[in-house]
Design a protein around this nucleic acid. Structure first.
Lengths: 219, 219
DNA sequence: CGTTGTGAAATGATTCACAGCT
DNA sequence: AGCTGTGAATCATTTCACAACG
């Protein structure tokens, strides 16, 4: 299994397949078909098969996909068959909402450090996490093998936080600040921007009930 | 200006253009060019021009785009030239983080109601918002002309909350639950799913420094 | 000049449709 | 019969390249 070219939309769907398969497994299902996965996720069966076939031949003609087998494969592909240590930078509203989010750990992401620049919160403990000063960041990121940084600071500070994280060795950044981060090409950035999402909603809604935008779900 | 077909990727970029233009205006810039907008956002100039040309001829050859003019146009197109009343359902971690988010109002979104099903929080006031029981939802959505609902409840409850919101008259839903919502085609849904984003990050990072995924920014 | 708007070409993603396996 | 994997066809989006404009 060398390195297949992965279309970006496919990459996003991989996580969705995994999620749906886990749900089906919880319901006691032993196998699933591309048809079944597709209808659950609003996709065509052909789409599902194309996506999965990129990585190998996981399916069994006449049967479908064996759920435990495919789950294991997807976890390996997505890198969630191991655990990832992450740091949250910014103990404001968003950072605080993220800390107690138990599902993180259940999915293999462990928050092992929290940083903030505000002396008023440094030293306090939130949801079991001690808030540390930014000056501790380089050392802790290295010591605790943190590869993922979560930026939950105001837009004005986001770029310099990103720079600090990258310099310390972080390889992936989840960015909640409404700003485009400029990063080296060997670092991955994924942004969560709910203001943008709200605006998309306003746009689609104001296009009116008979929208001229595609009629497919805006998932 | 009838109803142009708007490619979905274009719709997302429209908000980005508006944001960048506002930043440039704050810096005192009177005009901007497709080249300048493009480099600021990691896009080609041709892309920017194509996107904007869908809605009319806003540019001035040799000059570029007059910033105040284009901002006004984009606001009108996106529907953010007016104010939108929104309701938050779910006063848990995420809901609570959203309530004090001042930027919402600044961008034309006003949280005018908050609902939860937990008797322990109903009646309490969070960030100036009184938490109301779900039974108040239908009436309040109508009375306060709420067109946008923000779902911040656990996945298991999300679909029924969506149904309740839509029945009450909401036309757009911002969904924070990690689940696909089944909605009528006249309702728009946009999802914010940071577990998904984290997994994308893990995927890209584990593909290794020399990723086989596109080398462009993972914005 | 510099910059727009836009057909034409190139690239990318999805769907079709069917041979082949169980 | 039911279902996968996949080449070919279709559809969508981006980039190119250039005439026209101020």
């Amino acid at each position: 299994m060398p390195k297949p070219r992965v279309p970006r939309p496919t990459a996003k769907r991989l996580s969705l397949y995994l999620r749906e398969l886990e749900a089906q497994q919880d319901r006691g299902q032993p196998t699933s078909s591309s048809k079944q996965l597709g209808t659950a996720l609003g996709l065509t069966d052909a789409q599902v098969r194309k996506d999965l076939a990129i990585f190998g031949q996981f399916g069994h003609p006449g049967i479908g996909y064996k759920i435990p087998e495919l789950i294991a494969q997807l976890r390996k592909i997505l890198g969630t068959d191991r655990s990832w240590n992450a740091a949250i930078v910014g103990a404001g509203n968003i950072g605080r909402a993220l800390m107690p989010y138990a599902r993180f750990r259940r999915k293999g992401f462990e928050i092992v450090a929290v940083f903030d620049s505000d002396p008023a919160v440094i030293g306090s403990v939130i949801a079991g996490h001690k808030v540390r000063p930014m000056s501790d960041l380089p050392q802790l990121v290295r010591e605790r093998n943190i590869l993922i940084g979560i930026i939950a600071v105001p837009a004005a500070a986001a770029q310099q936080v990103a720079d600090a994280l990258i310099k310390a060795g972080v390889k992936g950044i989840l960015n909640f600040a409404p700003i485009r981060l400029e990063v080296d090409h060997h670092v991955s950035v994924d942004s969560v921007d709910f203001l943008l999402s709200l605006e998309q909603l306003a746009f689609q809604v104001s296009l009116g009930l008979a929208g001229s935008l595609d009629e497919r779900d805006g998932e």
